[in-house]
Design a binder for these strands. Structure first.
Length: 255
DNA sequence: ATGGCGGACATCGTCCGA
């Protein structure tokens, strides 16, 4: 089976691209972030017509997450039960034996800001929740926009970015804390091209210059990592007209 | 040092993202 994640930066604007991408890449599960839609505006009809079911939680203007899947979801959870949050950033569901957690980690704005503290607290609560979830669901995958470049090799210019939000030490510690509970970065299970990124700024021709960051990740529990046969970033949709600034990340599981 | 691009909005300037 194939699972994927894509921050679409408005599902309203990107719906046709999502449907086209699913036609080209008929993955079993696609996690979306930044849908920016309230639930009553979610384009369920169009998605179902494409052969997918969906679970989602959204709000106006900001955030919003969804899981599109060919199979029916069970045990749906919206947001982290350990972290009361008005912002809709997490949806989780079970498909067969696999537990999917779709997350849109806060951006953090700038190091030391209120939003940065919120990001760190949010990540700590995510870790604490998933530590328990992993015991309940040994086949667990955490997919999403983490808004963290875990290592310098995930940054086009690590010197210029040093200490900045998205790469700061505290954020990287929070990322490694997710690895510490037994999750594995699927992308790094395999040899990868150098300068592999999943996000490029819209400005200053960042994409053609490949000035990007790897912010979107698929973390797998040990049992799933053992079954993972590939993990790739699909740069193609970033070349399309009116693209999202993020591109999809895909993992293949022998499941 | 600033703004740059793109999306959304009790829009037409401003906030936010990364």
């Amino acid at each position: 089976m194939k699972i994927a994640t894509w921050n679409v930066n408005s599902l309203k604007v990107r719906l046709l691209q999502v449907l086209q991408w699913l036609k080209d890449n008929p993955v079993d599960i696609l996690c979306l972030q930044e849908t920016k839609l309230t639930d009553e505006k979610f384009p369920l009809t169009e998605i179902e017509a494409a052969g997918y079911q969906a679970v989602f939680t959204g709000q106006k203007t900001y955030n919003g997450v969804a899981i599109l899947a060919k199979e029916t979801a069970s045990d749906i959870v919206r947001n982290n039960p350990l972290f009361p949050d008005e912002q809709q950033r997490i949806v989780a569901a079970t498909f067969g034996k696999i537990r999917i957690v779709c997350a849109y980690v806060p951006n953090g704005q700038s190091v030391g800001s209120d939003k940065y503290r919120y990001k760190i607290e949010w990540l700590r609560a995510l870790r604490n929740w998933l530590e328990e979830e992993k015991k309940k669901y040994p086949y667990l995958a955490l997919l999403g926009d983490y808004n963290i470049a875990p290592e310098d090799r995930d940054v086009y210019d690590p010197v210029a970015w040093a200490g900045n939000v998205l790469v700061s030490e505290l954020e990287r510690v929070a990322f490694r804390a997710l690895l510490d509970i037994g999750l594995v970065d699927a992308f790094r299970l395999f040899e990868q091209p150098e300068k592999s990124y999943s996000w490029w700024d819209y400005r200053q021709l960042a994409f053609p210059r490949n000035r990007g960051l790897r912010l979107d990740h698929i973390l797998l529990s040990g049992k799933l990592a053992f079954l993972c046969s590939a993990c790739t970033i699909d740069r193609q949709p970033r070349k399309w007209k009116q693209p999202s600034d993020h591109t999809p990340v895909i993992a293949e599981l022998d499941l």
